[in-house]
Deep mutational scan, measured.
Amino acid sequence: VTTYKLVINGKTLKGETTTKAVDAETAEKAFKQYANDNGVDGVWTYDDATKTFTVTEMV
């Protein structure tokens, strides 16, 4: 189990959260659900070296 981080660069919501998951795919599903629940829709990137997902909403 690995800890993954999500950085949110939203128009109205900004911040970070973490989740523990067995792999990046599982973490991504959890983060996308979290973003969807919070009304964040944007471009996703993932950095495997730092285990960090970033979602950026276009203005």
Rank of each mutant, 00 (worst) to 15 (best):
K32M: 08
D47M: 03
K51Y: 10
Y4T: 01
V22L: 14
D48Y: 05
A24D: 05
T56R: 04
N9K: 11
K11E: 08
E25N: 10
Y4M: 01
L6G: 01
T19K: 05
T17D: 03
T12H: 15
D47T: 04
D41Y: 14
K11L: 13
T54Q: 05
V40M: 06
I8P: 01
T26Q: 13
Y34T: 03
I8V: 08
A27V: 03
K51V: 04
T18A: 07
N36G: 09
K32E: 03
F53W: 05
L13W: 13
K11Y: 08
A30L: 15
M58C: 14
K29I: 10
K5H: 12
Y46L: 02
A35G: 03
D23Q: 04
K14N: 10
D23S: 12
I8T: 03
N36K: 15
G10I: 14
D37E: 13
W44Y: 02
Y34R: 03
T56Y: 09
V1K: 08
M58P: 12
V7G: 02
V43Y: 09
D37C: 09
K20G: 07
D48H: 08
Q33H: 07
T52I: 07
K20D: 15
K32F: 06
K11T: 11
T19L: 13
A30R: 05
L6C: 08
T2F: 15
G39S: 06
T3Y: 08
D47Y: 04
N9W: 12
F31G: 00
V40N: 02
N9P: 03
G39T: 04
Q33G: 05
K14Q: 10
V55D: 00
K11I: 12
T2S: 11
T17I: 15
G10H: 06
N9H: 10
V43R: 08
G15Y: 15
T52Q: 04
N38I: 15
F53H: 02
G42I: 02
E16K: 07
A21I: 02
A27D: 00
E25G: 10
T54K: 04
K14V: 09
A21T: 05
A35L: 10
K11M: 10
G42S: 02
Q33C: 06
K5A: 04
K14F: 12
A35W: 03
T50Y: 05
T26F: 07
A21L: 03
Y4V: 01
T18S: 12
V7H: 06
V43Q: 08
Y34G: 01
T17E: 05
F31D: 00
E25V: 11
N36C: 12
F31W: 01
A30C: 09
D47S: 05
N9C: 11
T2Q: 14
D47Q: 05
E57C: 05
E28N: 05
G42Y: 03
V59K: 09
T17A: 15
